[in-house]
């Protein structure tokens, strides 16, 4: 069975290391990579009436911007890497979306970069890696 690897990608340095790692793996095993960029979003947030009215428009703009600024550069860079790379931009809670994407795409692995946050912030809000470790349907690799 060909390997399919989901990479949680936010354009940061560590995310790029995670991507390189995943591409190497995929190349070695004849697999493919699904690049997922998540826009943090909660359906339980509070918006003003004007924000509601413009939400659909803003969403289209945000999706287009993420696609052109984050996904497209990677796709063109990896165009000749010899591995099939796809990209997707999604809304939601990062760990949940990555887990759901892996499930939907039938992936065998999730790869994310280590953010390097420690201490107070991650204690309070939890880290993506921590949540993924608990929720992921497939093995998760964290690339330092």
């Amino acid at each position: 069975m060909p390997q399919k690897i989901v990479v949680g990608f936010d354009g940061s340095e560590s995310a790029n290391r995670a991507l390189d790692f995943a591409v190497d793996r995929a190349k070695a095993q004849g697999g493919s990579v699904l690049l997922v960029h998540v826009l943090e979003w909660s359906p339980y947030s509070f918006l003003t009436p004007t924000e509601l009215e413009e939400r659909h428009k803003r969403r289209s703009e945000e999706l287009a911007r993420a696609q052109s600024a984050i996904i497209d550069p990677v796709l063109s860079r990896l165009g000749d890497a010899g591995v099939m790379v796809e990209g997707a931009v999604k809304y939601g809670h990062i760990a949940e979306v990555l887990a759901a994407s892996a499930k939907d795409a039938g992936a065998n692995q999730i790869v994310i970069g280590r953010t390097g946050h420690s201490g107070m912030a991650s204690r309070l809000f939890g880290s993506v890696a921590g949540s993924l470790a608990q929720a992921a349907p497939v093995p998760v690799t964290i690339v330092p």
Partner: peptide, 13 residues
């Protein structure tokens, strides 16, 4: 449809 106006948001507003 995540990222669109949810039922919760419409109700809350």
């Amino acid at each position: 449809d995540a990222g669109e106006v949810s039922h919760f948001q419409a109700l809350a507003t």
